[in-house]
Nucleic acid binder design. Structure first.
Length: 482
RNA sequence: CGGGGUGUGGCUCAGCUUGGUAGAGCGCUUCGCUUGGGACGAAGAGGUCGUAGGUUCAAAUCCUGCCACCCCGACCA
C-alpha cells in the first residue's frame, strides 16, 4: 500500500515532493494528505522552533498547552469563524464504543477553546495583558494537499493574547508580524513582503490579518506566517470580559498569530538548485559534514583521529558538525547524499592533503570545491564561511525576487507580468473587489497583501483596474500562490 | 465533488493489444577486486501482479463492481 503511494509520488512532477523526499525530510503516510516528518526534516523544525520559541519568550509570552479536542458547539459561537472552518474540520463522533452526545472537533486552530478558558481566567484589567503561546498540531481537512505546504495535519505555534485596549492589541499584532519577518529573513534566509490582507483574504473571525509573503523559486507566492488583530470578535462570542479601571465591564481585545511546518516548505522551495535542497546555515541541522577519505582493509585510524579532532574544534566554536565515518559507503555516495540534503559545507579529510596540512572544503550553495584550505585555524575559517553563506543565500533569494517583481499599471500589463517573469505584480488599487474576482477567474492569482514597504506613488501611479489616479488608492502585491 | 491518470519485488517500470501461471534496471545480502565524485565482477534474497467477483481447461493479461493514490480545478496556513 505504502509502496504504491511512494511510487505515484516519485512519478509526479512535484519538485517540492521530489526534493523533500530525496533529502529525507518527510515521507507520505498511509493517511491521505498526512506526512511523516523524518529525523532530518524534524531536526530543521526543531531548529526553527528553538529560535522562534526564544523570540516569543523574549517578547513576553508564556507557553502552555490546550487539548486537541474542541466541543463542536465552540466552533459555532463566532459566525465568520464557523463559516471559515466548519467545512475543513475532522470530527470525532464516537469514543469509548459509544456515540458521543456532543461531537468533538479536532482543532483546526484554538481560538475557541482558548477563549473559553480566557473567559474564566480574566476578570480585571489587572489580569491583562495575557499573552500565551502553544506549540501544537492542528488538523484541517483540505481538499488538496501538498507536502509541507498544505497537509491535513500540521505542526505549528499559535499565539493568543488578550489586551485591555485595541491599540495594545494592534501593537501586539504588528510586533509578532515583525518577529516572523525576522525569523524568515535572518534565519531562514527567505526575504518577505509584510503587509495587511484584504477583507476577502483575512482570517475567519479576525478584524484584520497581517501576513509575511515569500516568493518561491517557481514564481509562486507563499503565505509564510500570519498575525491577526481579532479585536473583540471572539471575546464577544465567548464572553471574555474584564472590569476596567472605571469599574466598567469591557470585552477583551485579542490577537492570534502562527507559523507552521509550512516554513520548511518555504525553505525547500525558496532555496534549491538542480542538485536539491540548499539549507541556510542558521537552520541546518548540521552546518558542516566532515568526510574522511577512508581506505578499506587499511589502517584508517590516523585519518579518523584527525577528523575527530577537527570535529571537536568546530564544536568548540558552536558549529553544528556531523562526522560521517561510515566505512561501508564510498565517499562519492556521501558527497551526493549531503548535497541533496543541502548541508552548507563539506570538509574532506584525506591522507594526501593532511600530510601537507591541507583540507578540502566544498560550498553547497555555489557548488564550488576549494582545495588547499589550511588545516590550521579551520574552525575560524568555517565559521566565517557559514556567515557568508547565510548572507549569500539570502541575497540570492532577494535577487530572484527582484527579478520576479513587476510594477504594472493596467490589466494587460498585469496579465503579462503574471506569466512572463511570474512572481509579484505591484500596483495601485482603488479597493473595488471586482479586481479580486478577475484575478481569481482569469489568472488564478490573488492579492497577497497591501505591503508595508510601499514603492509606488498614489499621486502618480494609476489604479490597475480603473486607470485613475487617486490619493485613496492602495498599493498591493498580486501573485499566484501556494 | 468534476476532469485526467495510475495501481506488478524496497524504488522506477516492462509484460496486457494477440490469456498458458512474472521480468529488467536500480537498491539490498555475501564474496572478490577496487577506493580523492554516485566503481566493477560473481553469486543470492525478495512479488498470492490494489481488491471482490465473472468468463475460461487456464487470467497480471479479457469483463464488471469496489478501493486507494497522484495530477488539474473549486477550498485553504
Amino acid at each position: 500500500m505504502s509502496a504504491q503511494t511512494k511510487e505515484q509520488l516519485s512519478t509526479s512532477e512535484s519538485l517540492l515532493a521530489d526534493i523533500a523526499i530525496k533529502a529525507q525530510l518527510a515521507d507520505y503516510s498511509p493517511v491521505k494528505g498526512c506526512m511523516v516528518i523524518r529525523p532530518y526534516g524534524y531536526a530543521i523544525w526543531e531548529r526553527i522552533k528553538s529560535i522562534l520559541d526564544q523570540m516569543i519568550k523574549d517578547t513576553g509570552h508564556e507557553n502552555c498547552y490546550f487539548p486537541m479536542l474542541v466541543p463542536e458547539s465552540f466552533l459555532q459561537k463566532e459566525a465568520e469563524h464557523v463559516e471559515g472552518f466548519a467545512p475543513e474540520c475532522a470530527v470525532v463522533t464516537h469514543a469509548g464504543g459509544k456515540e458521543l452526545t456532543e461531537k468533538y472537533v479536532l482543532r483546526p486552530t484554538s481560538e475557541t477553546i482558548i477563549n473559553h478558558m480566557f473567559a474564566k481566567w480574566i476578570e480585571s484589567y489587572r489580569d491583562l495583558p495575557m499573552k500565551l503561546n502553544q506549540w501544537a498540531n492542528v488538523v484541517r481537512w483540505e481538499m488538496r494537499t501538498r507536502l509541507f505546504m498544505r497537509t491535513s495535519e500540521f505542526l505549528w505555534q499559535e499565539g493568543h493574547t488578550c489586551h485591555s485596549t485595541w491599540d495594545e492589541a494592534q501593537e501586539e499584532t504588528l510586533t509578532m508580524l515583525g518577529v516572523y519577518k525576522t525569523l524568515l529573513q535572518d534565519y531562514l534566509a527567505v526575504p518577505v513582503e509584510s503587509g495587511k490582507k484584504t477583507e476577502s483574504e483575512k482570517f475567519a473571525g479576525a478584524e484584520s490579518t497581517y501576513t509575511v509573503e515569500a516568493l518561491m523559486r517557481d514564481g509562486k507566492a507563499l503565505q509564510a506566517g500570519t498575525s491577526h488583530n481579532l479585536s473583540q470578535n471572539f471575546a464577544k462570542a465567548f464572553g471574555t470580559q474584564f472590569t476596567n479601571e472605571n469599574n466598567q465591564l469591557e470585552f477583551a481585545y485579542q490577537t492570534s498569530w502562527g507559523v507552521s511546518t509550512r516554513l520548511i516548505g518555504a525553505v525547500v522551495m525558496g532555496h534549491h538548485d538542480d542538485v536539491g535542497l540548499m539549507l541556510p546555515p542558521e537552520i541546518a541541522p548540521y552546518q558542516v559534514v566532515i568526510i574522511p577519505i577512508l581506505k578499506k582493509n587499511k589502517d584508517n585510524s590516523e585519518i579518523l583521529e584527525a577528523s575527530k579532532v577537527i570535529e571537536q574544534e568546530l564544536h568548540a566554536l558552536g558549529i553544528r558538525t556531523k562526522l560521517d565515518n561510515r566505512e561501508t559507503i564510498s565517499q562519492g555516495i556521501k558527497f551526493n547524499e549531503y548535497e541533496q540534503k543541502g548541508v552548507p559545507l563539506r570538509l574532506v579529510v584525506g591522507a594526501r592533503d593532511l600530510e601537507q596540512g591541507m583540507l578540502e572544503l566544498h560550498r553547497r550553495d555555489t557548488q564550488s570545491k576549494h582545495k588547499e584550505i589550511a588545516r590550521k585555524g579551520i574552525a575560524e575559517l568555517v565559521a566565517g564561511w557559514l556567515k557568508q553563506i547565510q548572507t549569500d543565500i539570502y541575497n540570492r533569494a532577494l535577487e530572484f525576487r527582484a527579478g520576479h517583481t513587476t510594477t504594472v499599471t493596467n490589466l494587460e500589463e498585469l496579465a503579462a507580468a503574471l506569466d512572463k517573469p511570474g512572481g509579484f505584480a505591484r500596483c495601485m488599487w482603488n479597493g473595488d473587489i471586482k479586481l479580486e474576482k478577475i484575478l481569481k477567474d482569469k489568472h488564478k492569482a490573488t492579492i497577497r497583501c497591501m505591503p508595508d514597504e510601499t514603492k509606488l506613488d498614489s499621486s502618480k501611479d494609476p489604479c490597475v483596474l480603473s486607470g485613475k489616479v487617486s490619493g485613496d488608492n492602495t498599493e498591493i502585491l498580486i501573485a499566484r500562490a501556494y
